[in-house]
Design a protein around this nucleic acid. Structure first.
Length: 834
RNA sequence: GCCCAAGUGGCGGAAUUGGCAGACGCGCUAGCUUCAGGAGCUAGUUCUCGCAAGGGAGUGGAGGUUCGAGUCCUCUCUUGGGCACCA
């Protein structure tokens, strides 16, 4: 008997699949229901690590299962090929980004093929190819036309040593990654933005449509990210400056009688005017400079020690008429709300902390509805809940809920404010001062200003052979051939935009390109996209819960408004797969904790690797990687191989298929066990694939079936070859989505030719899953005291009677008072004693 | 700091709708078998008291709801992810 050699088996079947082009998806196949299954496109870092492996194994198992269920499955892959790492590699090693990237793609593609992932390689895309990125440019131009793309000044991380812009990742504890003694500064430059905020409400509404198909946690995170808040704007006039006022946004206008100060951002546009003529203003400029120069990362700002200074100016509280000092505070964001907030220490935690540090008064404006009233000399934390207003002029006595409405309305009536909805979502800054990305297709003409590159001149090609230093301005600015051009409008001299686009643009619409990957007249054909969309199932890491998935949804809505698609959400169902951790942290190149898939393939074979990945944990759960359990997967496949090859000789000649009827009545006892176990396993594995997506339990169930088969050896006694063949067929088909190579081999051993990719998923029969008897547990006061085997059909009364007369139960309840007896049919009887 | 998750044996995990906690696998222990391979087979393996039968405890921690809680509620601790220029 031949031993199972995964390397030989896997190479053999991969060749067959390749020759058959087995996984090509046909457009507009009207005979079958389409199923678009997609895993998030990888960044070609060069190593296909266990995080990818897990993602693709899950996807592939589902793709193969769906094909077996009769769907026309689109299962594509491509490469998110632009981005920072290629540029870093170029700086470090001098390898041109394209060369580095393409070598990585080739490497990772070969690993994907080696693992037998059933992709339609005819549809492979790479975002760094002009054929792809010209459509990024095309989309940008459409957005420019619609006023969705615009330019404004905005802050970036700046290293004064490198004289260059740093990505957040390149900022380590506030210092440049290359110069760990140079603190990163913030610098304001002109940048391109996409007006995603215009779609804030639509993005929020769409969440309703996604409920049910997307994980709840992702939707919650997106809703919070968009951060709609119903609040009010109120204008505080600045004392002594007639034409200057500060607008604050607050969600707690009910607390306004507790204002101790007005806090404004160091980047507030009115600051300059505010400080004019103030004594000591020059000293303040120093402080402002240092506050403005801090890192622009939100997490850094939020965790920084609260700092501020008094501007010397006062503002008038429009409700109370009292004056409040105006402070600059580092935790007030210029980008959110109005860039100014009212400081109410008694009812806001951050304000309380700020007031403690700078000894601002704490004035109570809200008292709790119940419990001990607050005293302003006894507060050691803010009271942030709703309550009843006190010392609030005409509003005293109202509840917070009442006051929120009335005060906002009054502000509007009196002309110093109004109710307002604000979103936390900010416009999407897409300019990158980098080389390896999509050139932004505009030119700057002295005469005509900003001029869009016309469609027929796309793509604006990224020049090759550019020397990257990691220093100074955008690398493209030092390529004269690129920069110097003519204005499409007037024909005069013009300069090209030298910034490139955020790579999130590439990944915001790539899944449409798969439906029509070679189209050179449009990003995709509308008909083709209409056939395949929406994506039936998207699978990817939970770390993409917000950014990628919000940008994609935004793009879809813009495309809808451009008339390119007729749906509003690109992804019907999302599966958020858990991360693969190593040493307690996400496996990623930047953390240097990668474990490659190829090593595992060499050592154990790909099917073993696939099986173990699925078996190790349910797919939504984070998985700390170690290879401790992989032997188990390897042993199991060997066991199955031995089992099938042992019996192949006696069953391979038998003609049968799984749809022919099975007669339980004439079966032997052994056959009954095997038939029932097989159908029970089929039922639960089908449920795992269709509903639960818990492949770890599928594997466990199939292992149990194999154990049962072994326990029933010898299988050529009291088991007809026909029954045995059917059991082995079902077993082979069940493992095939997870371990496709060995399954093909076993299928062939069972006497079939033509491969099993086209085979149908086996159906279970409910009547064949049922056992004749069920086990009922008997509890006393919730503790198991006995068990009994009874007929399935027993009534509640009969169950109660039998339980009370159970020989182990009787002595325990003798002489005690039975309070009640709870009977759960087919499960348990619980006797409650006093 | 803010938002979102997750915590069950020595380890990965199971318990699908509130109903036997620890399926399946790894590891370990003992035995068998084989001629030495990272093989196969059998039995055992949460902790604890006990020779045993059997009892008690137990799902990060503290409370609560319930006949019954890993599962529901409140608080809390720890770990992981995201925080807009890593992708």
């Amino acid at each position: 008997m031949a031993e199972y050699d995964p390397q030989i088996v896997e190479a053999k079947w991969q060749k067959v699949w390749q020759e058959q082009n087995a996984f090509h998806a046909e457009d507009n196949d009207s005979s079958r229901t389409k199923y678009y299954l997609l895993e998030m496109l990888p960044y070609p870092s060069g190593t296909l690590h266990m995080g990818h492996m897990r993602n693709y194994t899950i996807g592939d198992a589902v793709a193969r299962y769906k094909r077996m269920c009769g769907f026309n499955v689109l299962h594509p892959i491509g490469w998110d090929a632009f981005g920072l790492p290629a540029e870093n590699a170029a700086i470090k090693r001098g390898t041109p980004p394209r060369e580095w990237t393409n070598a990585n793609i080739a490497q990772m593609k070969s690993v994907c093929q080696r693992f037998g992932f059933s992709y339609d390689w005819d549809r492979e895309i790479s975002t760094c190819e002009p054929e792809y990125y010209r459509w990024n440019q095309w989309f940008f131009l459409r957005m420019l036309e619609k006023g969705l793309a615009y330019r404004r000044r905005s802050r970036v991380n700046w290293c004064s040593q490198c004289q260059t812009v740093l990505a957040n990742e390149q900022v380590i504890d506030g210092f440049c990654w290359q110069h760990d003694t140079t603190p990163v500064e913030a610098k304001e430059i002109e940048q391109w933005f996409l007006r995603i905020t215009q779609y804030a409400e639509a993005l929020l509404e769409g969440i309703g449509e996604l409920a049910g198909g997307w994980p709840e946690r992702v939707l919650i995170q997106q809703r919070n990210w968009i951060g709609k808040s119903q609040g009010a704007r109120a204008r505080f006039d600045v004392a002594q400056i007639a034409d200057l006022s500060l607008e604050v946004f607050t969600t707690r206008i009910d607390t306004i009688y507790g204002v101790s100060a007005v806090l404004i951002s160091a980047n507030h546009p009115g600051l300059e005017k505010l400080l004019e003529g103030v004594r000591g203003a020059s000293g303040m400029q120093e402080q402002l400079k240092s506050m403005r120069a801090k890192s622009v990362r939100a997490a850094d700002i939020a965790t920084a020690e609260k700092e501020g200074f008094f501007t010397g100016r006062f503002a008038v509280n429009p409700f109370s008429g009292e004056s409040a000092p105006i402070w600059v505070a580092n935790f007030v964001l210029a980008e959110y709300g109005t860039g100014a907030v009212m400081c109410v220490p008694a009812h806001d935690e951050r304000d309380f902390e700020f007031a403690e540090k700078y000894h601002l008064p704490v004035t109570i404006a809200i008292q709790p509805l119940q419990g001990t009233p607050l005293r302003d000399d006894r507060m050691n934390e803010a009271f942030t809940e709703y309550g009843r207003l006190v010392d609030s002029g005409p509003y005293t006595g109202l509840t917070s809920e009442q006051a929120l409405v009335k005060m906002a309305d009054d502000a509007k009536a009196k002309g110093f404010g109004e109710p307002q909805i604000t979103y936390r979502l900010k416009d999407w800054g897409i300019s990158r001062q980098r080389y390896w990305g999509t050139p932004i297709p505009v030119v700057y003409c002295e005469k005509d200003g900003i001029v869009a590159v016309p469609d027929d001149q796309l793509p604006v090609r990224l020049p090759e052979n550019v020397t990257l230093t990691g220093q100074g301005q955008s690398p493209l600015a030092s390529v004269p051939d690129f920069v110097n051009t003519t204005c499409p409008k007037c024909g005069g001299p013009a300069r090209r935009e030298t910034d490139t686009m955020d790579t999130f643009i590439d990944s915001s619409w790539y899944f449409y390109r798969y439906t029509d990957p070679h189209n050179d007249r449009a990003p995709f054909d509308k008909e083709k996209a209409a056939y395949w969309f929406q994506i039936d199932q998207y699978i990817g890491g939970v770390e993409h819960a917000i950014l990628h998935l919000i940008y994609s949804r935004f793009f879809c809505k813009v495309m809808h408004d451009l008339g390119l698609v007729n749906h509003l959400e690109p992804v019907k169902r999302l599966f958020s797969q858990g991360m693969v951790l190593k040493d307690g942290a996400k496996m990623s190149k930047s953390k240097g904790n990668l474990v490659g898939a190829i090593e595992m393939a060499d050592k154990y074979g790909c099917d073993t690797g696939r099986l173990y990945t699925l078996f190790a944990a349910p797919p939504e759960k984070d998985l700390e990687w170690n290879e401790q359990g992989i032997e188990g997967a390897s042993r199991f496949l060997n066991k199955v191989y031995r089992l099938v090859s042992k019996h192949a000789g006696s069953v391979r000649g038998i003609e049968t298929d799984l749809t022919s009827p099975t007669d339980l009545a004439s079966a032997t006892a052994k056959e009954k066990i095997l038939i029932r176990r097989t159908h029970q396993t089929l039922k639960r594995v089908t449920n795992d694939f269709d509903v639960r997506w818990h492949f770890n339990t599928s594997v466990a169930l199939i292992m149990e079936l194999v154990n049962e088969l072994q326990a029933q050896e010898p299988l050529d006694v009291e088991v007809s070859p026909l029954i045995l063949k059917r059991v082995l067929m079902a077993l082979t088909l069940m493992i095939s989505p997870m371990t496709p190579h060995i399954a093909e081999e076993l299928w062939e051993m069972l006497g079939f030719s033509g491969g099993l990719v086209q085979q149908q998923w086996p159906r279970y029969r409910e009547d064949l899953t049922r056992e004749e008897q069920v086990e009922i547990i008997i509890q006393i006061n919730g503790r198991v005291r006995s068990k009994m085997l009874v007929e399935d059909s027993l009534s509640e009364d009969e169950l109660r009677e039998r339980a009370l007369n159970d020989p182990r139960i009787k002595p325990l309840i003798d002489g005690k008072t039975i309070v009640k007896v709870i009977v759960v049919p087919k499960k348990l009887v619980n006797i409650v004693l006093k």
